[in-house]
Amino acid sequence: MEKYNLALVVFTWLTQASVGLIILRAIYMRRSSAGDDKIYITGRYILLTAFILLVTGLLFSFAHLNYPRHAFNALNNIISSWMSREILAEIILLFILLAWYIINGFTIKKTPQIIMEILAGLSGVALIYLMVRTYMLPSLQGLNTPAFPLSFIITPLLSGSAIIYFFLRKSEPELAIKYKLFFAIIFLFSLINHLIFRAFHHTLGVFNIYSAFYLAALIISVPSLYSTLKNKNVMSDVIFLNLAIICDFLNRVYALTYTNPAL
């Protein structure tokens, strides 16, 4: 894999983690049984995390430009380039999150929060759609599989639920368990997604670093889920979440390896 593709892996992954956090935050705000103040503070931290992830992702996207001095030109071709549209959507989402965080600091009234929530959610979903279109070029046969758009749906949910789980693990364990179970289900989808990729690339039988990580995450998931259900905080818990996230990240590395030209 070429160097600049790794920067893109990090960019897509962090951006999607940010979108996932925004969407899953909306569920937390409605399902939490903690006091209003507590929900407000946790919600604000989640929002800040989403913003930091998005900014970090954007900074990584600069790393794949070989001539970043002209970077502002990347918005020139909104009419026909999916990449220009993707960057525009990213910037719009960035400003929405920033505005939301500022509004959040001034008022806790529900109406402006809900408006910003809807705006951020919609632009986040639009951003993911535009990302899929950016990479699914007719010339890149290796990416033109159903696994590719699926991986762009799995990553936001997986990373989003993991981060929210870590926020709630100690303060609201009952809700945290639900996020953890959701995470475990999405992890299984990530595994299936990886297998679909492999099937399309005829590498199902090959054992490599991707297989090793997925296998390790699967094994550790058993004691981790058991301890979570028993309300215990053990090491396997943290190891499973980290391993599963690394697996999904590696799945993205695997997918974007196929951005290398066919010839």
């Binding site: 430009l65 001539y67 030109n73 380039s81 990449m83 010339s139 951005t259 030209p261």
Partner: peptide, 10 residues
Amino acid sequence: KCIGCGYCTW
């Protein structure tokens, strides 16, 4: 105008 992103090669 070029930013060297390599998207044209893809």
